[in-house]
Design a binder for these strands. Structure first.
Length: 587
RNA sequence: CGGGGCGUAGCUUAGCCCGGUAAAGCGCGCGGUUUGGGACCGCGAGACCGCCGGUCCGAGUCCGGCCGCCCCGACCA
């Protein structure tokens, strides 16, 4: 490609809207251009880089038996009504009517269409297992797009769907994806970790997210450096400090005027926060038949811990969970700041107690009377809960659930996820097959996603310096940036033809620009190898070859440039290939 | 959806508080001089100052509404 013809310009100054590195550099180097919030055009350089990533993804999917197909972006709403998601999903889903007035859906994902294909095509266990995938546009009307390509509303996703006759088959395909995802990300040069993640309301059994660790990430991850435990904070477990055993003492009401925080209470009574019970009030939207009803959730954790809202939502099977308003709290008979479940009408509240509370004797809790607390409350004797479960948040410094070492919190960007779906969609749509015994059973599904543009952004995030991008070979829009400087034009033209003839992807800066401009632009765009042909270089015996990350260049005789470049490309490729190694599966 | 910030030339910004008819740098076009890390000189094109309304003799500037963009939070199958 001749740069003089390229539809792309570099920016000397940083557009004011960009704060995140990948966003700034992708804009400045001319890879992307904004259209509106969360909507970007990929310019030719960006499109080529995305095509490279897609090639890596296809290779990875094909290697585990994936078959590429393509499913529509627009779906009839009826299909989404059948699985219920037409009703469950809110404004995030794009909806419109076609000319006949039929409700239509802009695809956020393709479980419905896959399950529909399955019910039409799959009759027998003999047709299973299968793995299908496509790279397709998704629309998710995110309330808050941000950080360039990291979080957008329209994006390309690789989504694959495994179809199995039995659960062992699902497990095999799930593990195959686990490894394939590591391979794909590492081939792109990206360092990722897998973390256990929330399965939410999907009814699945297991899910992992693939995370690129970076402070700009939106997910908080809980990591154990000692044993390798990793989890999204939403589901992270922890080893809770045990309470000292003690005989239950009689309840005792104490005046605690003006004390309405846990720390204030502990200080006032000269005890530790762990000797108190913390009350948290939420309102959960819960499905009741085909209705959604609000339930008042009264959650109790020990004072030295915090509620994890995702865990709580899962325990109470909430579609939505929000903090309760003060009037709602008073309406159930509790006093904000001085609340406890003792004496409340169990029919008006859904009481959920963290599993550390029953084993913690003599906790101080509210007296449901402003200005008073109760000493020596004991679970079982003084109150019982509808649900006892782990609802506590793990955080930086919590003890690892597996080995007890201190956990570390870190931020990450989710570039992929894998999900054991089970029969959620196939049952809803009647996608059944006949097993060996002639029994009709729903096909067992898994779904697996990779955000292509987000992956590109994360690679840009990991590979840049103060001068611009530094693409790994596998993602670079071209392998070589060939610069023609004064006195070297003719030789550069010859080299350009020779490199192309040899199948090397080369961007040829044939523009009438000064050397400085070309060097600056080459650094910005960040192609792996730079070849400079100039009068000076020719006098020195050939062309200058410089890898983008290095400071120094070397002279290569003109007749050896093609071979030398091909050698460099091979070793860059080999270095990436070397990153691809088996990763132990960790549930 | 809550909180905050910002909309002036393609980009980055000044001007706004204190109203008088828009400025600079970069980029772009032409000419000349330069020619290995975003050159220099000259000339030039380029702005309904986000939109609508109000106040005023007069609004980029003050007031109201709306729209858009960014950041934080909520949210993110």
């Amino acid at each position: 490609m001749r740069q003089s013809q390229l539809f792309s310009t570099t920016l000397r100054e940083v557009p004011s809207e960009a704060e995140v590195d990948s966003h700034r550099w992708l804009l400045r180097a001319g890879f992307i251009r904004p259209l509106a919030a969360g909507l970007f055009s990929l310019m030719p350089l960006g499109k080529r880089a995305v095509a490279k990533i897609e090639a890596v993804i296809r290779a990875g999917m094909n290697a585990i038996g994936g078959q590429e197909l393509s499913m529509p972006v627009v779906h009839p709403a009826d299909l989404w009504r059948e699985t219920g998601r037409w009703y469950q999903i809110g404004d995030e889903m794009g909806r419109f009517r076609d000319r006949a007035g039929r409700d239509m859906v802009l695809a956020m994902t393709h479980e419905e269409v896959v399950a529909d294909l399955v019910r039409k095509e799959i009759r027998s266990y003999r047709q299973l297992p299968l793995l299908v995938y496509h790279l397709q546009t998704k629309w998710r009307d995110d309330p808050r797009p941000r950080a360039g390509l990291i979080r957008v509303r329209e994006f390309t996703m690789k989504d694959s769907y495994s179809l199995d006759a039995d659960w062992d088959g699902l497990d095999k395909q799930y593990r195959a994806h686990y490894q394939a995802y590591f391979d794909i990300f590492r081939r792109c040069g990206l360092d990722v970790i897998a973390v256990k993640s929330d399965v939410g309301m999907m009814g699945g059994q297991l899910a992992h997210e693939f995370m690129y660790l970076t402070p700009i990430g939106e997910d908080t991850l809980i990591l154990c450096d000692a044993c390798g435990y990793t989890a999204n904070r939403q589901v992270a477990r922890l080893r809770k400090p045990a309470a000292a055993p003690a005989e239950p003492l009689p309840l005792e009401k104490v005046a605690t005027p003006g004390v309405n925080t846990i720390q204030g209470l502990a200080d006032f009574l000269n005890i530790s926060a762990a000797q108190t019970a913390k009350a948290v009030f939420m309102v959960a939207a819960v499905s009741d038949g085909d209705q959604t009803v609000d339930k008042f959730v009264f959650a109790v954790v020990r004072g030295d811990m915090d509620v994890n809202e995702t865990k709580l939502a899962n325990v109470v099977r909430a579609k939505d969970l929000r903090p309760a308003r003060e009037d709602e709290i008073r309406a159930v008979g509790a006093a904000p700041g001085y609340a406890s479940p003792i004496g409340l009408d169990p029919r008006r509240i859904l009481l959920v107690v963290d599993d550390a509370v029953p084993s913690s004797p003599n906790l101080v809790a509210g007296a449901n009377e402003t200005g008073y607390h109760l000493r020596h409350t004991n679970y079982g004797r003084d109150y019982t809960a509808a649900l006892v479960a782990d609802i506590v948040a793990a955080d930086d410094g919590s003890a690892c659930p597996d080995c007890g070492a201190p956990l570390r919190a870190a931020r990450g960007v989710e570039v992929g996820n894998i999900f054991k779906l089970g029969t959620r969609y196939t049952e809803a749509l009647g996608a059944n097959f006949l097993d060996k015994d002639g029994q009709s059973r729903p096909v067992i599904m898994g779904s697996y996603g990779i955000g292509v543009g987000r992956l590109l952004a994360c690679v840009a995030e990991q590979y840049h310096d103060d001068n611009g991008l530094i693409w790994p070979l596998s993602v670079a829009p071209f392998a070589v940036h060939l610069l023609a400087l004064p006195g070297g034009e003719a030789a550069a033209e010859t080299l350009y033809q020779a490199l192309q003839a040899a199948g090397v992807e080369v961007l040829f800066d044939d523009r009438d620009e000064r050397a400085g401009v070309k060097f600056k632009d080459a650094d910005l765009i960040g192609l792996p190898l730079r070849v400079t042909v100039s009068e000076r270089a020719l006098k020195n015996g050939g062309a200058e070859l410089k890898p983008r990350p290095s400071k120094d260049s070397r002279i290569v005789p003109l007749d050896q440039v093609v071979a030398t470049v091909q050698g460099e490309i091979s070793s860059l490729q080999a270095a990436l290939d070397q990153r691809v190694v088996p990763v132990p599966f960790r549930e």
